[in-house]
């Protein structure tokens, strides 16, 4: 085979290979987002319990992802969890009394932070802290509370039926 044809084919091969790598990086993985998340601004929020929240979990408002969780730390002084969030730069009009809660996607899905806008006219700036937070629902606590209520309710019923029988 002519060496020129060989060279063109090899060039094509290397080109396609790098195109594939680029495709994997930008289209398949989160590299495309990571680059934009380098910009934007940071907010903090304190939670009593972050449950299963992971780094890079989405931060969403009205169901739209507007940022990502950047880090989760434990505060030795207050025994709280401090969550650092990166908010995309175009969402720069969050009211100061915005509240944050840790929500779950679906019944057993991943956890994420949901923001609910407040009513103030002043906006959050880089490094601000969200004051109103609601912790993650922990399944065990939910179940035990549910069982507790159920048991209480059941006792009442049992008492009632026992009373009826004794009549």
């Amino acid at each position: 085979m002519h060496s020129r044809v060989v060279e063109i084919w090899v060039g094509l091969f290397v080109g396609i290979g790098f195109l594939a790598l680029f495709f994997l990086a930008m289209k398949v993985s989160n590299l495309g987002e990571l680059s934009s998340s380098r910009e934007g601004y940071t907010l903090f929020a304190r939670f009593e319990n972050t449950g299963n929240l992971k780094v890079r979990a989405p931060v969403s408002m009205a169901g739209v992802t507007i940022g990502r969780v950047k880090s989760i730390r434990f505060d030795k002084a207050t025994y709280d969890a401090v969550v650092e969030m990166r908010i995309d730069p175009q969402y720069d009009t969050l009211p100061e009394d915005t509240s944050a809660s840790i929500l779950t996607a679906g019944l057993l899905g991943e956890q994420f932070i949901g923001l609910t806008a407040g009513a103030l006219e002043t906006y959050l700036k880089d490094g601000d802290q969200l004051e109103l937070t609601q912790s993650a629902l922990v399944l065990e606590q939910l179940i035990s509370r549910f069982l507790f209520n159920k048991a209480e309710g059941g006792d009442k019923k049992a008492d009632a039926s026992a009373a009826a029988e004794s009549k």
Binding site: G17, A20, F23
Partner: peptide, 15 residues
């Protein structure tokens, strides 16, 4: 040199 390029091609076409 060819292996990573071929593996990337495989993954891309697979996706």
């Amino acid at each position: 040199l060819s292996m990573p390029l071929l593996a990337a091609l495989f993954s891309m076409v697979g996706v």
